[in-house]
Amino acid sequence: MAGAIQASELNLLTWEGYATPEITGPFEAATSCKVTATYVGSNDDFAPKLAAGGGVYDIVVPSLDAVPVLQQAGFVQPIETAKVTGFDTIYPEFSKAASLNADGSVWGVPLIWGSVSLLYRPDKIQGTPDSIGILFDPAYTGKISMWDDKSSIYWAARYLGYNNIYDLSDEQLDAVKAKLIEQKPLVRKYWTSAGELTELMANDEVYASNTWTGLTSKDVNALKKGFEVVEFSPKEKSEGWMDSMMLVKDTPNEDCAYKFMAYMQAAEGQCAIAAATGYFPVNPAAVAGCMDDAMKKDRQVGNIDFVKSLIMWEQPARLDKYIEVWNAVKAAP
C-alpha cells in the first residue's frame, strides 16, 4: 500500500506561478498524481537543494543556462521523449537547444519561456525611459530594485557597453562589480520572488526594477492601487530565458513525472501556465485552440524572431567567478 501511495506523488522544485491550483488541479483529477511544489528564487538554488537531498524532488524546472550544471553533476537522468506526448510540436529552437541535448541524450522538456524586461511607475519616473540607465539614476535613490541573482551582472555589463556578458574578463568583472556597488544606495531591496517585487511596487517602496516580463506587471496592475506599472525592453536589449522540466535521477515517481510533462505540453497545461504567469508557451500547436488571436500576439506565439532579438541566457564561462562577484556586491557596505 505504501508503494502505491508513493507512486501517486509528484514533487516539483520549480518557480512561483508554475504550480498554481489552476495548473495542478485538472492534472491531479485526471491522473490521481498528487502534486507538491517547492519554489526557488534563483537558478543557483537548484544544485544545492538537489545536493542536500535529491530524493525529495521528482521534477526540477531550471532555466536553460542551469541545465548543464545539473546534468554534469549527475542530479538528473535523460528524458525518454517518446513518453512525452506533444514533444514533437515544441519549438525546435528550444527542444533542440544544445544545453538540452548533450552526450547523445535529451535532458529536459521545454515548459515556458520569456524575457527579462524593465518595469517602472510612470507616475514617479520622469519622461519615457528606454535604457538600463534607469536602474542607475541617483534621482531614484532608495527606490530601485533588482533581482537577487547573478544576472544582475549581465545588466550592469550591458549598461557599461560589454556585449560578451557571459564571458567577461577580470577587468570587465571588476568594472561591473564597482558599478553595482556604486548602485547600492539606490537599491531599496534585491527581490527574490515575483511576489516580493509585486509587494515592493504595490506598497510604494520601489519605482523601477528589472522583472520577468508579464508576471509582476499583471499582478501589480490587478491590485488597482490607483496607478499602473509599465514594462519596456531597453535599448541595450533584454535577456531571454526558457525553463525546462528535468527528471531527477532515480525518482520513484517516474510515471507521474512523465504524465505531468505530457500534460504540460497539452492545451490545458500550456494555456494554464501562460495565463498564470503572463509568460510565453513553448508549444504553438498546443495553444492553437485555447488562445484567441490577441493573446497569441501578446504571448509571441509563432514569433520566433522575438527569441532571436533577445540575449538568451547561457551558463557563464566562469560560473564560480560570477557568483563570487555577485556575492561580493551583496556583502559590500
Rank of each mutant, 00 (worst) to 15 (best):
F87R: 06
N101E: 04
Y207M: 09
S99A: 15
P26Q: 09
K296C: 02
F260M: 09
V116Y: 05
V67P: 00
A274I: 15
G240C: 09
I23H: 04
S145D: 05
T81V: 13
I323G: 00
P26T: 10
P185G: 06
Y140F: 06
S209A: 15
G86P: 12
A276E: 10
P281C: 06
W326H: 01
K237G: 12
K225T: 09
A222W: 07
P316N: 04
Q300D: 03
T81G: 10
G25M: 06
T89P: 10
A102F: 06
A222V: 03
A267G: 11
D255S: 11
P78R: 12
R318K: 10
T81I: 12
G302S: 02
S145N: 10
A157P: 14
P333G: 14
A294D: 11
I273R: 01
N210E: 10
L111Y: 13
N253A: 03
S244A: 15
A82S: 14
T192P: 03
N203T: 14
T216N: 02
V116M: 07
A52E: 09
T141A: 12
Q126H: 03
A257C: 07
V109N: 02
F260L: 11
A29C: 05
S169V: 13
K308V: 02
C290D: 01
A4D: 14
A202Y: 04
T36M: 10
I90V: 15
I311G: 00
A294E: 12
F227S: 13
E93P: 12
W15Y: 10
T14W: 02
Q270G: 11
T31Y: 08
L310P: 11
C271G: 10
A175I: 12
G133S: 04
M264L: 10
F136P: 08
M295R: 07
W155V: 15
L215Y: 14
T36A: 13
D137S: 09
A202F: 06
F232G: 09
S131L: 01
T277L: 07
S115P: 15
M261G: 07
V84R: 03
G142L: 01
N203Q: 13
Q315K: 09
G114F: 08
S117K: 14
T89Y: 00
L186V: 07
V35P: 08
S105Q: 15
T85L: 01
K249R: 07
N163G: 13
P284H: 05
E9S: 08
R121C: 14
A202R: 02
L223Q: 15
N11R: 15
D137L: 06
W191Y: 15
N283P: 08
F227V: 13
L100H: 11
A208G: 06
Y190P: 00
T251V: 01
Y162T: 13
A97F: 08
A266G: 15
D137G: 06
A286E: 00
D174F: 10
F136K: 04
Q300P: 00
W313N: 07
K177T: 11
